[in-house]
């Protein structure tokens, strides 16, 4: 999976590449060789430019405008109105924004941490299991990984259902004294898990961790397989404990893998939408909005306020870019230096 060919030929030499290999035939089309990569890039660039970069610029512009239905409809369109920073002062004044921001951040931290911890633990476990058992477990976690986000939300909504949900049934199974000791109550019948913001997020975290730990586990397993067995052998001879071995050998060697997994998890968890949408049943309980949901509700619930929606989306993007900037810089550096 390393791509040495790219690296050895990579940047540092900005001259058009075709020149480097004299005698390479320029064929058929009659186009100069140097133009070929650009031609190949045209469709991709067009798509990325038109569907990602330019829209992002539009978001940044709209965040300072008032954009409602009269400004976007195809017939008899009105020009958008500049409102300066009104959209921002309006959302910052609203408590929905602050609870959405808090929900987004707390959820991301908890979900990412838990996913990584559970995933790594399972990855290490898989590496230790026998062949048959590990295949069984891999197939099992594959199922959890494959379930579409909407279906994930549906499944866990059903498991946590107040009346016929299996979670309340299982909690009722606990001996009363234990349940009372731990939770301060014995009867769980009809417990509405999807009502309060905090319990919605608890269910959401379980859902997201359940669905995303398999990827971490399998990636960690792949990484572990690449570590020479001698290293562990040596550690064992030295009498190192399992934890020490993990800390001194496994973790440092897998550091790049963890870096990637962390960033991917952050990107995925920061803007979780589908599962939350299903668990809440649309943007209903405003205390449980995250930034994605808040932006959606502002922009698409009547009357549509695309400007404030864009302002919230911009805040979300900036946070995400700042959080992932470190990673991007590192990748860019590698790209430039090698």
């Amino acid at each position: 999976m390393t791509d040495t060919s790219t690296r050895t030929r990579g940047g540092g030499n900005p001259s058009p590449s075709g020149r480097r290999r004299p005698g390479r035939p320029a064929k058929a089309s009659g186009l100069p060789v140097w133009s070929i990569p650009y031609l190949l890039l045209i469709p991709g660039l067009l798509v990325i430019g038109a569907l990602l970069l330019y829209p992002m610029v539009q978001v940044a512009i709209m965040a300072f405008q008032k954009v409602g239905l009269p400004q976007i409809r195809p017939v008899n369109k009105r020009p958008p109105e500049w409102v300066g920073t009104d959209n921002f002062s309006q959302i910052f004044d609203n408590e929905i924004f602050w609870s959405a921001l808090r929900n987004t951040l707390v959820f991301a931290v908890l979900a990412v941490t838990l996913t990584l911890v559970v995933g790594t633990a399972v990855g290490v476990l898989l590496n230790k299991l026998g062949k048959k058992m590990s295949t069984l477990v891999i197939v099992g976690i594959m199922f959890a990984w494959a379930v579409p986000p909407v279906a994930q939300g549906i499944i866990w909504k059903w498991l946590f259902d107040a009346e016929a949900g299996i979670i309340n049934w299982a909690l009722n199974l606990l001996p009363d004294w234990l349940s009372t000791l731990v939770f301060g109550r014995a009867d769980w019948t009809g417990e509405p898990w999807l009502n309060d913001a905090w319990s919605i997020y608890m269910v959401l975290i379980i859902t997201v961790v359940w669905a995303s730990f398999p990827f971490i586990a399998v990636s960690v397993l792949a990484g572990l397989k690449g570590i020479p067995a001698e290293l562990y052998e040596a550690a064992r001879v030295d009498g190192a404990s399992a934890w020490r071995t993990f800390r001194k050998i496994t973790f440092p060697l897998l550091r790049p893998v963890f870096a990637v997994l962390t960033v991917l998890s952050i990107i995925w968890d920061f803007k979780v939408f589908s599962q939350l949408y299903v668990l809440m049943g649309g943007p209903t309980n405003r205390e449980a909005f995250n930034l994605s949901m808040y932006s959606y509700a502002e922009a698409f619930r009547s009357p549509p306020k695309m400007g404030s929606g864009a302002a919230i989306a911009l805040v979300l993007t900036v946070i995400l870019l700042v959080v992932t900037a470190v990673y991007v810089r590192q990748l860019v550096k590698q790209e430039d230096m090698t």
């Binding site: 001259s15 992002m56 994605s292 695309m306 989306a313 995400l320 870019l321 430039d336």
Partner: peptide, 29 residues
């Protein structure tokens, strides 16, 4: 992957940044 051309690094950076943009932010435009 096969050519070394001017602007290649820029393109790769663009790709990376594009991946970081949350799809939800692009919903409106």
């Amino acid at each position: 992957a096969r050519f070394n051309f001017k602007g290649r690094s820029t393109f790769l950076i663009v790709l990376l940044v594009a991946q970081m943009i949350p799809a939800e932010a692009l919903l409106i435009p």
